[in-house]
Design a protein around this nucleic acid. Sequence first.
DNA 1: CTTGACCTTGACGCTGCGTCAGGGTCGTAG
DNA 2: CTACGACCCTGACGCAGCGTCAAGGTCAAG
Lengths: 254, 254
Amino acid sequence: MLTIGQLASYAGVTVRAVRFYHQKGLLPEPERDRSGYRRYDSAAVVELIRIRTLAEAGVPLSRVRELLAADPDAFAAAVEQIDQRLQAEIRERRRHRTRIAQLAAGDSLALPPEAVAYLDRMRELGFPERMVDAERDAWILVAAQLPKSMPMYMASKRGQLEDPTLLALYRDIGTAVFEWDGDDPRLPALADRLVASIEAVYDEEVDAYAADPMSDELVALLDATFLDATPIAARMIELLQERGWRGWTKLERA
Amino acid sequence: MLTIGQLASYAGVTVRAVRFYHQKGLLPEPERDRSGYRRYDSAAVVELIRIRTLAEAGVPLSRVRELLAADPDAFAAAVEQIDQRLQAEIRERRRHRTRIAQLAAGDSLALPPEAVAYLDRMRELGFPERMVDAERDAWILVAAQLPKSMPMYMASKRGQLEDPTLLALYRDIGTAVFEWDGDDPRLPALADRLVASIEAVYDEEVDAYAADPMSDELVALLDATFLDATPIAARMIELLQERGWRGWTKLERA
DNA sequence: CTTGACCTTGACGCTGCGTCAGGGTCGTAG
DNA sequence: CTACGACCCTGACGCAGCGTCAAGGTCAAG
C-alpha cells in the first residue's frame, strides 16, 4: 500500500495536487490507516495518471471529472471541443506575438504600422518631438475606435505632408500650438491660411471619412484633447467659426 | 472631463478593469468631482489604451507597470522576453494538441501509440477484455516512469505475441489469472512452461532492459498490482522461486 | 418626483494549486 | 529510549485578472 507521497511521485504530481483532486472529487478518497494516513493501491496510480494526462493536455479539472466517466462517443466529442479551444489559444498567442513584435519601437505601442510610418515621416521632416507626441496620442485614440480606417487616414495625412504649402502650414500650426498664447495677434492670419487649405480639400475628404464615421463622442474627446493641449485652441476654434467652419476634429460648414 | 464609464468605453475595457488598474498602481487615480466621482482627461485614455495593448499582448500586469516606465532598450529586452514566453506557450499548446489527439481512443489515455497498438493486437488475437485492461493499467504505470523505454518494451512484447508457443502460454496465464484459485492443481505445470520460456529469452532481454532500468519502487508497485489482481499471484511467485526465479515483474535467478 | 443609468466602496468567487502554520507519526540511528 | 528527519494531517491564505453581487449615493431626463 502506498502513502500519498509515493502515489504522487509515481504519477509525477505533487502531494498538494493529489489532495486537491480529492477535494474536487476527481480522485476518490482512499481508506485511512490507523494513524489517519491515506493508503492507496496501485489502481489509484493509474487513475491519477489518467487525471494528470488530461489536465496536462489543458483540460479544465471540472471537465476532467466528466471525461473520466464519459462513454467513448461523448469522450470523442469533448476531445474535439478541447482541441478547438487549444487551437483558438494558439491563434491568440500568435496574434499577441505579431502585436508585441510591433512594440519594438516606442511609438507602435497601440498604433498600427502605417501610423508609425507617418510619425516617423514627421520626424524626418523636422517636426519637433512634442508635436509628434501630440499627434501620436491623438492617433492612438482614433486607432482604438476606428482601427479599420487607420490606413485611409494615414494615407491622407502622408499625402498632405508631401504638399509644400500644407507642410509649411503644419509647421506654423505646430509653432503656434506650443509657443503662442491665446491672444497672439498672428492667430487670425494663421486661421485664414488654415481655412484656405480646408476649403481646397474638404469636399473630397468628407466623402472618404463618411464611410466609417467617427462617433460624436470620439470627436468630442479629440476636441477636448486639443483644448487641453494648447492655449491657442479655444481662440482658433472661434476664428474658424467666424470664417464659416464649426468644430475642430470634424469640421463642418457653419 | 470623462467619467470612469466613458474612459473605459473609449479604451475598450470594463469599468472594473480600470478600477483594478488603479488599485495595482498601473493607472494613477485622477481627481474626484464634488460627488466623489473620478474625472479623467483625454491623456488618461491614451495611458489606458497603452496598458490594455500590453495586457492584451499577454504581458502580466506586474510587468506592464515596469514597461510603461522603461527606457527603449529595457523595453526592447522585455519585449523579447515576452515573445519567448509566448512562443513557449504556443509550443506547449501544440504538445497538448498532439496529446489529446491520441486520446481519441480510450486506451490511449496516458499511453503512447505503440502501447495502444500492442493492446489492439491483443484484442485481435482474442484476449479477453479484462486481460487487456489489466495489461493496459500495468503499462500506464511503466509509461509514466520510463516513457523512453516504451518503444523497446512494446517491440519485445509484440514479438512475443507472434510466437505461437508464447502466445499459447499467455492465453493460458490469462485464464489462470482470472479463473483459477491460488491452490489450483494446474498451477505447477503452468509454472514449468513459464520457466521454460523465461530461460529461453532471459539472457538477451536482461541486456535490453538494463539500459534504462526500472526503479525498485516501480518493480514493487507492479508486483503489488499483480498480487492485488489475482489469487494465483502469490502461489505463482512461490512456484517460480522453487524453480530458481525470484520476483515477478523483474525476474532474477535466485 | 420618479425612473433608470451611472457612480462609490467592499467583499467574495473563479482556477489550480503553492505555501505556510501548527500539529501528529514513522523509521532509523545513536 | 530518545532524538531526528522525513513524512503525514487539516485549515487557511495567496497568486492573476478581473466578474459579480451588495448596498448604497448621484445625475439627467421626463
